[in-house]
Amino acid sequence: MSQASFILSAFDLNFWCSVLEAKFTVDDPATLQAIIDADIDDDPDFAGFYSIDPSELNAINQRFDVGFDPASLNLPEIEVWLERARKGRSIRDVPYLVHTNFELPLMLEGRKKLARFTDVLPKTEEAFDRWVEKGLFHKEVFLEPMPASLKPYVIDPDHSAVRDVYYTLKGEEWRIPAMNLLWKAGVGWNEHFERLEGMLFGYEDWQIDWWIAHRNKQSGGIGGVPFCCTVDSEGLKWMELAGFKALPTLAEIQIHIYDPDDDTVTAALLAEDESAVALALFKLSLEMQRKLLDGNTRGPWQINRVQIPEINCHLKRQVDVLFRQSAP
């Protein structure tokens, strides 16, 4: 493994948020995995979150000179967590405080109007319920049968229902049926739904604008997995004439999952295709994603010319062009 950055967090169980963090770099993550006794075969990329006990924290501080001291906060209930810093995907890269894991203090300050949890952990629910009992929050619970389309992906066979828990500030109860209606609209998620959801949660307009623009730039739009394929000069001209609203139907294409954090892989796709002049980035409806994946969740997927018109009928937004280069 190469050098990597990690984050230690002190999580306050009363206010259900991180109250202290420290970022540090290690030359070989395997040495850190040895300290926390993580199975490197189960998590070779160190992608998981790990609960750190006092002896492990002491070893990390000594080995990597972190100086992380949550005990100095003198808070009654704290857990320490370790995660790998993710370039380009972390909510810490956003220029405002994302509500995730800060729902409770932001609601108590009145800055967040609504919180929604699906199959919430008992500890999280207990933390919010305390404020329901004190009369500050309103709570509603919805139980829905597990959709048939999701049953094959459920780990626990006894998990037959989806449990949604909503909390609002008193006086903001109207947001719950509005959010519930939004999620039951029955169509694919898009920028308009994303904007409405952000407004119901309590984000400011400029924050929603930034988020949508960022998602469009990084992964080709809101909702779903981003896909990409190479196109030659004729295919690029075809897309230009189509107003970038469709993929070219001139020849078969090979579709890959697009990773916005790994330029080397996407650049390699261009290098492997001698006729390629650009990489097309697009998103598909959930219906088409399921049909496309069909037992192959990693790709690539070979799409013949006859299938491309159907793919085009399920595009969620315009096709973006990345890594444009001169014709070979």
Rank of each mutant, 00 (worst) to 15 (best):
P152D: 03
V132K: 03
E126T: 14
V162T: 09
E125N: 05
E125R: 04
E172K: 12
E144C: 02
K123F: 10
K151T: 15
A178E: 15
L182S: 09
I176Y: 00
H159R: 13
A127F: 08
K170A: 08
A115G: 09
H159E: 13
D129A: 09
W131V: 04
D164F: 04
K113T: 13
R111K: 15
A185Y: 13
K139H: 09
L150E: 11
V120W: 05
P152Y: 05
E133L: 10
R116H: 14
A127C: 09
V165G: 01
W174A: 14
E133F: 06
E140W: 01
R175W: 03
I155A: 04
A185Q: 12
M179L: 11
L143P: 00
A115N: 10
G171L: 06
K139T: 09
F128E: 02
E173M: 02
F117R: 14
R130T: 13
L143R: 12
V154C: 08
H138L: 04
D129Q: 14
A178F: 08
E144D: 11
K170R: 15
P145A: 02
P147V: 06
D129M: 11
M146D: 01
K151S: 12
R175F: 03
W174K: 11
N180S: 13
P152I: 08
A127D: 07
D119N: 15
K184N: 15
I155Y: 02
P157L: 00
E172R: 11
P157M: 01
A178T: 14
H159L: 12
E125S: 05
A148M: 08
Y166N: 03
L169F: 08
A148K: 14
K184P: 03
P152S: 03
P157N: 01
G186P: 08
T124K: 11
S149G: 00
K134F: 07
D156V: 07
K170M: 13
S160N: 14
R111M: 12
T168K: 07
M146C: 09
P147Q: 02
R116E: 05
V120G: 07
K139S: 06
A115E: 08
L169G: 03
